[in-house]
């Protein structure tokens, strides 16, 4: 219905618009004025840094003379990329983050979906209270959340650990095996509400008639939720998955904060932490190559996932 409407308007409007655009004239300046507030920052803070990183990533450091010498950079082709691919620490950080994502993303999105569906049932009272409560962690900045949780994990200070010790359990949230999942827990706590809200707003836009029709056909609330609501909001679920994949690959704040209290998080724990460590060692070219590789992996994974799911979801 709406589709036909837009098509019709387009057909009517296009001849005039086309002529004016092609002719340049007074409207070019107007368009420029409207576009520039977005375009200038986009170039300065997006395209230029991306270009600079790409350019840095094909440079290598050379040096002339003596014990300290004078350094300069020169074109090095794919030398930095070869080093990234040969870097065991890079691949183990990618592997670690892969494991993190495979577990954390589905768990978080499932919880978010369940909460969204529960909030959408007509049976629930005090909806807005629950909605805000679930969303609230997202309002806490990531670093603050990580600091807060690091107190809850710390055996010296945590009331939770004290309580568990009291009933004979001695969990080590910061141990070599557990610390990755402690970080995952922080991410889940932070982002579940945000993802829930995206799904919930999609649920809100489903017309009520659909439910009435389903009920007339004898569908239970359970069937309505899983057979009608979930398929309809599939695009939102895919969107949140893509956001989560990107977020996972860029994981930094949570492990970086936990690193302050746990030596089981190395300086190369996640790909972004590795890039930062390399850059702080003054090896900007290598750090740039690492960043580009992370960006490419992110790009391939998110678009790959969209491609894979778009046909099924009918996007």
């Amino acid at each position: 219905m709406t589709d036909i409407a837009t098509r019709a308007t387009r057909r009517v409007a296009s001849p005039g618009g086309r002529r004016r655009l092609n002719g340049g004239g007074p409207r070019a300046g107007t368009i420029f004025a409207f576009v520039i507030p977005f375009f200038l920052p986009f170039v300065l803070f997006y395209l230029v840094p991306v270009g600079y990183a790409l350019w840095q990533s094909v440079r290598v450091v050379r040096r002339t003379g003596g014990q300290y010498g004078t350094s300069y950079t020169t074109f090095g082709g794919f030398e930095q990329y070869t080093k990234v691919f040969q870097n065991d620490e890079f691949w183990s950080s990618v592997g670690r983050i892969g494991l993190f994502g495979i577990v954390q993303v589905p768990v978080m999105l499932f919880v978010a979906l369940v909460i969204a569906l529960l909030l959408d049932t007509p049976l629930l009272r005090l909806k807005s209270v629950f909605r805000i409560t679930a969303f609230m962690p997202y309002a806490v900045p990531g670093v603050i959340a990580a600091i807060m949780w690091s107190y809850l994990y710390s055996p010296q200070l945590s009331p939770v650990v004290d309580l568990l010790n009291g009933i004979g359990l001695h969990p080590d949230f910061l141990g070599p095996g557990a610390v990755l999942w402690s970080a995952a827990n922080i991410s889940t706590w932070l982002w579940t509400g945000y993802n829930m809200l995206i799904m919930f707003s999609a649920l809100q836009s489903i017309p009520q008639e659909l439910y009435e029709a389903a009920k007339l056909d004898g569908a239970s609330n359970w069937t309505i939720a899983w057979q009608i609501k979930v398929p309809i909001i599939a695009p939102s679920i895919i969107l949140t998955t893509v956001f989560s994949i990107i977020g996972t690959l860029q994981l930094y704040a949570e492990p970086a904060v936990l690193r302050q209290i746990s030596s089981n998080i190395s300086s190369t724990f996640t790909p972004n932490m590795l890039a930062y460590a390399v850059a702080s060692g003054n090896n900007y070219q290598q750090a740039a190559a690492i960043s580009v590789v992370i960006a490419v992996i992110t790009f391939v994974l998110s678009f790959g996932f969209m491609r894979l799911t778009s046909k099924r979801a009918g996007l």
Partner: peptide
């Protein structure tokens, strides 16, 4: 056209950044 402007702008900035030869 916009892309050309963008690329030109970034090249100009990059050229400003490049100081490759040993001074």
């Amino acid at each position: 056209r916009l892309a050309v402007v963008a690329v030109a702008a970034s090249v100009a900035v990059l050229a400003g950044c490049s100081s490759s030869s040993p001074s």
